Every structure is written in C-alpha cells, then in structure tokens.
Amino acid sequence: MTDQSQQPETPMEGTPMIAPSSTDHPLYDTIVEACRSVYDPEIPVNIYDLGLVYTIDINAESEVNVIMTLTAPGCPVAGEMPGWLADAILPVPGVKTVDVDLTWEPQWGMDMMSDEARLELGFM
C-alpha cells in the first residue's frame, strides 16, 4: 500500500489553470471597463485586452479579488501595476473592497490577447 501523503500535489485533470471570473455578477462589466483604463506603459494596449487580467472574482458583498499577471517577471512596473488596477476598480459604484494578486502561473503568452489587442499591435 502506498502512502498518498507523500505524493506531490498536482491539479486534477480538467481543472482550469485560470479560475473563472464572476461574469454573472452585476458589477462585472463595469469592473472590466475599469480594467481597460489601465495600460502597460510600454505597450499601447490596456491590460485587460492584453490578457493580463486572469480572474475577476466578485463575492456577494461586492468584494473584488483580481488575479493578474505581467508580460514578464522583469517588467519595470511589476510592483506598481497591481496598485494601478486596484485604484481603477475601487471607485466603481458598488465595489466594497479590491484585492489584486499577481501570479506567474500560467505564464502570459501573446495568445492571451484579444483580437482588438492583436489588431492594435499589428499582429492581425
């Protein structure tokens, strides 16, 4: 008999690497628009359309938790961009609190950009 406690923890097959967003919450669309007001200073496209915002989780008390990434770990604004995003979302009417967490998993890739972002950057 093998001891399961010694096995490394691996995600279950079919478990998404990016948690789903609260797309059915009434504040979701307004929060997405707030995310679109934040730009990476080196890229002329907002961070939402770049695919840097992975999850927007809004609970019943209208507390918002955002999971985001950056184009690269060495990004010069790595320490500032989560604060910029929180500052953009907090004024949305109805939002109680905002917490922005930075993740590197999964790693961002150009395939995460919206069609609008690809067009803007000349990739389409």
Rank of each mutant, 00 (worst) to 15 (best):
Q107I: 13
L27K: 11
G74H: 11
P73C: 03
D87T: 09
E42T: 12
L119W: 08
Y28H: 15
L102V: 14
T55M: 04
W104E: 02
F123G: 03
M113F: 07
Q107A: 14
G109W: 00
E42W: 10
P82W: 03
A34S: 13
M81S: 00
P93T: 12
D49S: 06
V100C: 07
D49E: 13
P106E: 05
V98A: 06
T23Y: 01
A72H: 09
I89H: 04
D115H: 03
G51N: 08
V92Q: 05
D99F: 04
E33D: 15
V32R: 08
P41S: 01
D87P: 04
T30Y: 04
A78E: 01
P82T: 05
I43M: 01
G94D: 10
M1F: 12
C75F: 09
M68N: 05
L90K: 15
V66E: 01
L85C: 00
A117I: 12
A34Y: 05
A34L: 11
C75P: 11
D3Q: 10
V66Q: 02
W84T: 04
S5A: 11
A60R: 14
M68W: 00
S21H: 03
P20S: 02
P82H: 01
T55W: 02
A19G: 05
T23K: 15
I56S: 03
P44Q: 01
